[in-house]
Amino acid sequence: MKTVIVIQARLGSSRLPCKTLLNLRGLPVIDWVVERCGRSELADDLVVALPDTRRDEVLARHLQARGVNIFRGSEQDVLSRMHGAAAAHGADLVVRVCADNPLIWGGEIDNLIRFYLRENAAGNCDYAYNHIPRNNLYPDGLGAEIVSFGLFTRALREATLPAHREHCLSYIVDNPDLFKIRTFDPLDPALHHPELKLDMDTADDFINLSLLDIRPDITPREIVALFRQTLTS
């Protein structure tokens, strides 16, 4: 069974344009994401799914120069683009990651994969997540989402609303009566901080991250300690 991390990236964000190539403590944000996802021990492959627009050509060239797999598809139909990337790399399980999560951690991706495999084998889970603090105690931005390629294909076939095509996997999340959706708390109690926002949606988020003494190999415990120190200072 092949598990593929598919990173959703583009340069056309309206709230923070070109954010994936912004310099965060000496490295482009996309490099943080790729490197930290690459620390997963259970994922077999990684690919970045980019729009096939002229604007995103610079991002594609940046990744190719670093030997990172890329797949290019529709800018608006993100569901189709992500599915195409997974299919091109022979995925049986798909781990979806957003490129605005520079502090994502490979170890938390592995915890997600283990959780999904255990719960799915027991018939309790179709889709699992730990990237947002919804019904769990995770900080926002450490984890990911996971589905089987078969369920991804079903979502591609059944999702017709524009919002479900643009917001990948939202068709599954918005239909809890059709799918078994599961999450869990961090295995390390020190990470039980759902109030912390580690992702990068806005310019303020980028500034806040840039002011922290972070490095590409910083651990989740160290991240939480830094953020808590900042909040209390």
Rank of each mutant, 00 (worst) to 15 (best):
V6H: 05
I7P: 06
Q8K: 14
R10D: 14
S14M: 10
P17M: 12
N23V: 03
N23Q: 13
L24R: 05
R25A: 11
L27N: 05
W32K: 01
C37N: 11
R39M: 15
E41G: 10
L42K: 14
A43Y: 01
A49K: 03
P51D: 09
D52L: 07
R55A: 12
R55Q: 13
D56F: 07
E57M: 11
V58F: 07
V58Q: 11
L59R: 13
A60R: 15
A60K: 13
R61E: 14
R61Q: 11
L63M: 03
L63K: 03
A65K: 12
R66F: 02
G67V: 06
G67A: 05
G67R: 02
N69V: 00
F71P: 00
F71N: 02
R72L: 04
G73M: 04
S74P: 03
Q76N: 10
D77H: 13
V78P: 04
G84S: 05
A85I: 03
A85G: 08
A86H: 01
A88Q: 02
G90W: 06
G90Q: 07
A91V: 08
D92N: 13
L93K: 09
L93C: 01
V94N: 03
R96D: 00
V97L: 11
V97M: 12
A99N: 05
N101R: 15
P102I: 09
W105A: 11
G106A: 09
G106Y: 07
G106R: 04
G107D: 07
G107E: 10
G107M: 03
E108T: 14
I109G: 01
I109Y: 00
I109N: 00
N111M: 00
N111Y: 00
L112I: 04
I113V: 15
F115H: 15
R118L: 06
R118C: 00
N120Y: 02
N124R: 15
D126K: 00
Y127N: 04
Y129I: 08
Y129S: 10
I132T: 12
I132M: 11
I132H: 10
I132F: 12
R134W: 10
N136S: 12
P139S: 06
P139M: 07
P139H: 05
D140M: 05
G141M: 08
L142G: 07
L142Q: 04
L142I: 09
E145W: 02
E145K: 10
E145N: 12
I146G: 04
S148F: 04
F149M: 15
G150L: 08
L151P: 04
L151N: 10
R154G: 01
L156S: 08
E158N: 02
A159R: 06
T160R: 14
E166S: 14
E166C: 08
E166I: 05
H167Y: 09
I172T: 09
I172L: 12
D174I: 00
D177C: 01
D177E: 14
R182P: 08
D188T: 11
D188N: 15
L191V: 12
H192K: 12
P194A: 06
E195Y: 08
L196I: 15
K197I: 13
D199Q: 13
D204R: 13
F206K: 10
L211V: 03
P216W: 05
P216R: 03
I218E: 05
I218V: 15
I218F: 04
I218Q: 02
I218T: 04
R221I: 09
E222K: 09
E222M: 03
I223C: 05
I223V: 14
A225R: 15
F227M: 15
Q229P: 00
T230M: 13
T230H: 12
T230N: 12
T230Q: 15
T232A: 14
S233G: 14
